[in-house]
């Protein structure tokens, strides 16, 4: 369906202070300075021991400006993102707490986030959340009291107007989070996606992190629209990247993950990496694949960096966090600036 979307120009921002004044997080300072930002990800464990969090966090030391801490990702129960975020903070890495609208109503969200801010967390990613039907408690009741746009608006008003969602004043001032959202440039309706990004900025997002980007031609088209609409001037776009681990993974992402685009040449390149290696030599094939995956990721970061309107990359290891350092290093992103 080829619907006609009217022309849109982002209205001038008159009410929000410059990014560095909104929040005093390291990520805010990096984004405000115009330096190319690097974020990573720490998935909390399905348990209550701190060591898995520390181990994952240490793999990111000095590689990223901040690290996302996921919130019951894919609707599977894990250690709370706020608790795991504090452990990440103890390891010297600035956390970006993720929170979904699936598990909490507006009371719980505001309350938990007042607490998170009080404990030293400064970055927040506001998400709708994956549906619980695909997780490990499919019989759970979901909440969705508010959606991700309304969540952003609520947090912006808590920060910039010192009011709760109900309009009541927050005595002593609201939590000053740097506010992020998610964006998927490849989901449908395709024409809607740049507009949706504009809407996230209007709702209050300071930055977005995108879905994994492998399809650069398609992503360039998206970013051109984003820049032309004046959206990139008001929201920092941090682009999701991640190393492929095998041909199978590339094909799975291409064919099975909704809202994901993996071009065929990339799949063929992964396949080519194991050409001539006997199928029985599993370790050799895995090493060859992983080396190629890292190489592709580095090349893509360099190309993404050159795209107008891009403010940084979000490197997702996807259960292969060891790859993040060589990727950041190979792409010339190290050392991280101290601002």
């Amino acid at each position: 369906m080829n619907m006609h979307y009217p022309a849109f120009r982002m209205p001038e921002n008159t009410d929000t202070p410059p990014i560095a004044e909104r929040c005093d997080s390291k990520l805010a300072r990096v984004l405000a300075s115009g330096e190319f930002a690097v974020t990573g990800e720490v998935g909390p464990p399905k348990g209550c021991t701190t060591e898995p969090v520390r181990t994952k966090a240490r793999l990111l030391t000095d590689c990223v400006d901040a690290a996302n801490v996921t919130d019951n990702q894919t609707a599977v129960v894990r250690m709370s993102s706020i608790a795991a975020g504090l452990i990440v903070l103890e390891e010297g890495i600035e956390p970006i707490i993720q929170m979904t609208c699936r598990d909490r109503n507006r009371l719980a969200m505001q309350s938990d986030l007042l607490g998170a801010y009080a404990l030293g967390i400064k970055n927040l990613l506001c998400l709708s959340g994956d549906h619980q039907s695909g997780g490990n408690h499919p019989g759970a009741k979901n909440v969705h009291d508010i959606d991700s746009m309304q969540f952003l608006r609520m947090m912006k008003e808590m920060r910039d107007e010192n009011i709760f969602q109900c309009g009541e004043e927050i005595k002593g001032g609201g939590p000053r989070f740097l506010l992020g959202g998610a964006a998927n440039p490849f989901a449908d309706p395709a024409q809607w996606r740049p507009y949706r990004l504009a809407k996230k900025a209007l709702a209050g997002a300071d930055f977005v992190q995108t879905q994994l980007v492998y399809d650069l031609p398609k992503f360039r088209e998206y970013m051109k629209r984003v820049v032309d609409m004046g959206v990139a001037e008001q929201i920092k776009v941090i682009v999701g990247v991640g190393p492929l681990k095998s041909t199978g993974m590339a094909k799975y992402m291409r064919d099975r993950v909704p809202g994901m685009s993996v071009p065929d040449p990339l799949v063929e390149r992964m396949d080519g990496a194991v050409a001539g290696i006997d199928k029985g030599k599993k370790a050799d094939r895995s090493t060859a694949w992983r080396n190629e995956g890292i190489k592709i990721c580095i090349e893509q970061i360099q190309e993404i960096r050159a795209i107008d309107g891009v403010a940084g990359v979000h490197i997702m290891g996807i259960e292969w966090e060891e790859a993040i350092r060589p990727i950041a290093e190979g792409a010339g992103l190290l050392p991280r600036p101290i601002i």
């Binding site: 746009m149 989901a187 449908d188 949706r196």
Partner: peptide, 18 residues
């Protein structure tokens, strides 16, 4: 399923719900 009020989520593809 997510009772969104502000447009489709990132899981909408080819007009189908994720």
């Amino acid at each position: 399923p997510k009772q969104l009020f502000n447009g489709p989520c990132g899981g909408s593809q080819d007009g189908i719900c994720e």
